[in-house]
């Protein structure tokens, strides 16, 4: 029973890590390697609103989300605009920017028990005979809600449909008057906002530290690789495989083996189905 619950929580946390990354990639084909950095940056932003400006958490959390979205948006116009379409340059620049943010944060010395975000909810319940605190339940609820909202957004709103058109065929989308730069920057902003939302609900579970940024990026990439890029179903499947895999490994082999699980999952998937479990195997089906 505890296995089931902790596995679920772990998987949802992984899904939260990934959702922003995979959304941005799915819409504009932009692999945002600064994803992890934006995640942790939003945490520090919220912390600053909270402790330096003295705002309450219910105000600083949404403000941090908006600020992060803005950062993502500017990111596109400042750094990526001239490099669009050069996969190598896009990749290096997002990665370098992410590392720069993380290293700057480390250098500023944001570390220690002082740097933590408050819980939304205190206390907990017993489910079966497993003690679960409310914050973790809140994480699960947020994760599920986000995925549902995203689905509605992408399939039933005008801008969501524009996103989908863009993802499917860039040239056709351009010809019906969808602006690729707007979509690109919006997709980055949305992805960053999702990273920030994940940070707001997950970070209170522990102490903030800039190396978490790398961890988030690694897990997001692992989930995306295992599940397959640009597939929501793949993302969910990937999170559950790695999430439960980790809990199982921790229970039956030893906690230190948890980090091996994503590695093992990646290696296995790459051997069996290199494009990920639910990835579209685009390699040979491309129009010749």
């Amino acid at each position: 029973m505890s296995l089931l619950i902790y596995g679920l929580i772990n998987s949802i946390i992984l899904a939260l890590y990934t959702v922003g990354f995979s959304l941005t990639y799915g819409i504009s084909g932009l692999a945002n390697f600064a994803h992890g950095a934006l995640y942790i940056l939003s945490g520090y932003t919220a912390w600053s609103f909270l402790n330096i400006l003295g705002l309450p958490f219910w105000a600083s959390a949404p403000l941090a989300v908006i600020a992060t979205a803005l950062v993502g948006f500017l990111f596109y116009w400042v750094l990526l605009l001239r490099l669009r379409g050069i996969a190598l340059a896009e990749l290096i620049v997002t990665f370098a920017a992410g590392v720069a943010i993380l290293e700057l944060l480390t250098w500023k010395g944001f570390y220690g028990i002082r740097y933590s975000l408050p819980l939304f909810l205190r206390g907990g319940v017993e489910i079966g005979n497993v003690a679960v605190d409310y914050q973790r339940l809140f994480v699960v609820a947020t994760g599920i809600l986000l995925v549902i909202l995203l689905w509605l957004f992408v399939h039933h709103t005008k801008i969501g449909l524009a996103f989908r058109a863009m993802a499917q065929n860039e040239r056709t989308a351009l010809s019906i008057g969808i602006e690729s730069d707007w979509i690109g920057s919006l997709s980055l902003a949305l992805g960053s906002a999702l990273a920030a939302i994940a940070a707001m609900v997950v970070l209170p579970l522990g102490v903030m530290e800039s190396t978490i940024g790398y961890e988030v990026l690694i897990y997001a990439l692992a989930v995306a690789i295992v599940g397959g890029l640009e597939s929501t179903l793949g993302m969910i499947a990937g999170s559950f495989i790695i999430g439960y895999g980790q809990i199982l490994a921790a229970r039956y082999i030893g906690a230190k083996w948890m980090v091996i699980v994503p590695l093992a999952a990646i290696v296995l998937v790459l051997i069996v189905r290199p494009s990920g479990l639910f990835g579209k195997f685009k390699e040979l089906e491309e129009r010749v």
Binding site: Y25, I260, P274
Partner: peptide
């Protein structure tokens, strides 16, 4: 696979190796 996959995997492997050795 073309595109970002190669970059993604090469980025992850050393970090995971490091964590593996640590753990």
């Amino acid at each position: 696979l073309r595109g970002v996959y190669f970059a993604m995997v090469t980025l992850m492997l050393p970090i995971l190796f490091m964590k593996g050795i640590e753990a």
